[in-house]
Amino acid sequence: MRSLKKVILAAAIGLGLTGSAFAAGEQIELPKQEWSHSGIFGTFDRASLQRGFQVYKEVCSTCHGMSLVSYRNLTALGFNADEVKAIAAQYTVMGGPNDAGEMVERPAIPADHFKAPFPNEQAARAANGGAYPPDLSLMAKARPGGEDYIYALLTGFEEPPADVKVPDGMYYNKYFPGHLIGMPGILQDDSVTYTDNTPATQAQLAHDVSAFLAWAAEPHLEARKQTGVKVILFLLVFTGMMYAVKRKVWADAHH
């Protein structure tokens, strides 16, 4: 019991320190974006996902890991097996132990998970002024609003209102619960140079990386929706037939 109280106390302090105001139930309205993958027949925009991966790779991955995604999963973005192999080979990961019992560095292979920017949470906190950049694998499912929230957050950095004092190492964001966030507004126009000549505006970068994170959180979204359409059509036909059978069977029951 005592340990639990300690835990809850620690949690309360932790929340207090991040300056969170969401205990008060403040509702922040998130602007809705257009996503090609929303709706019953929605599919991912492969080109956008590839650009989003580039944004992740060149900007986000400095601090944020994606531990649940493997390089081999990138084939779903439209990369072929050799391209995926080349992407994986850009990273070195710890392998081994070899026969001498030593851990050795080796190039990553497609079966490896995305390489984490920090070896552990403590290292991540030490490098980020005490804040822990969360893993992004499930971010689009782990926050209310999903990809809309990610987009809003990435484009929501602005000058704080006069009455808000922003402590050192914190930044003001219109859409972050509590508004004070440890992450700087890192995504700016032309933060990334796209290879397909898409203008790399802040809005475009945020849109692409949000779509990429939506894919990462729910990689089977397309299969799910396509199967769903078939299943529901089947059930409609079957249930319709069952209704006809029911009427026939019951036709003489009311005499």
Partner: peptide, 13 residues
């Protein structure tokens, strides 16, 4: 026929 057809659809399901 209706019974058979419905049964067949159910089996496929």
């Amino acid at each position: 026929f209706l019974y058979l057809a419905t049964g067949a659809v159910a089996a496929v399901g």
